[in-house]
Simulated assay, not measured.
Amino acid sequence: MFATLFVLLYVGHLLADYPFQSDHQAGHKADCGAAGWRANLTHAGTHLVTCGLMLAVGAVVLGLNVDPLPAATALLWIAATHAAIDRRWPVARWMAFARQAGWAERGGAAHVDQTAHITALFIAALALAA
């Protein structure tokens, strides 16, 4: 069940991060102030809804039995971690700590960002499958 849950959450993540993310959200989700937080939390909410819909599809189409309370907890985890990671400073701090300044200058931050998001999805799927 873990692999199925992970794939469902990953597809939800891809949908929320690419076709369902507006240019405004992408450009302002790390900004300081209310407008930045609004863009960030709207984007994180898109992840919550999209991943929730994917879990619902898994329940209806695949017959997955996912308890609503753990599912809600997993979805909140996904939204919260996504919002935190997308503030961009956690990725920048990690890359500074890992001495990856050169890679950051060549576009590596996007890869570290996605790795952090996918790790959060992995943890959510593992918790749901346990």
Rank of each mutant, 00 (worst) to 15 (best):
L75W: 14
Y18S: 07
G102S: 01
D67I: 05
G63H: 10
F122D: 10
G12H: 13
C51V: 04
T119H: 06
D31P: 08
Y10M: 08
T81C: 09
R99A: 04
M54Y: 03
T42R: 13
Q21I: 01
W89T: 06
M1R: 13
G33N: 09
A124C: 12
T4Q: 08
A124R: 05
R87N: 05
C32K: 15
M95D: 02
R87C: 05
A3I: 01
Q114V: 10
A80H: 15
L64M: 13
V112N: 03
H47W: 04
V60F: 03
A26E: 00
A116F: 12
D67H: 10
A79V: 09
A92C: 03
P19C: 04
A80G: 13
I123S: 06
P68E: 15
A79M: 11
V66D: 00
S22G: 05
A116H: 06
A44P: 06
W89D: 00
R93K: 01
A92Q: 12
D86Q: 11
D113H: 11
I123C: 04
W103V: 01
R106M: 13
T81G: 15
L55P: 08
P68F: 11
M95V: 00
T46L: 10
P68T: 09
A59R: 15
N40A: 03
R99G: 00
A98K: 00
R38Y: 06
G33C: 01
F20D: 02
G27Y: 14
V61Q: 10
N40H: 01
A59F: 05
A92E: 15
I78W: 05
T46V: 14
G27D: 12
A59D: 15
G27N: 13
H117A: 02
C51Y: 03
W77L: 11
A129H: 04
L15M: 14
L14V: 15
A129D: 09
R99C: 00
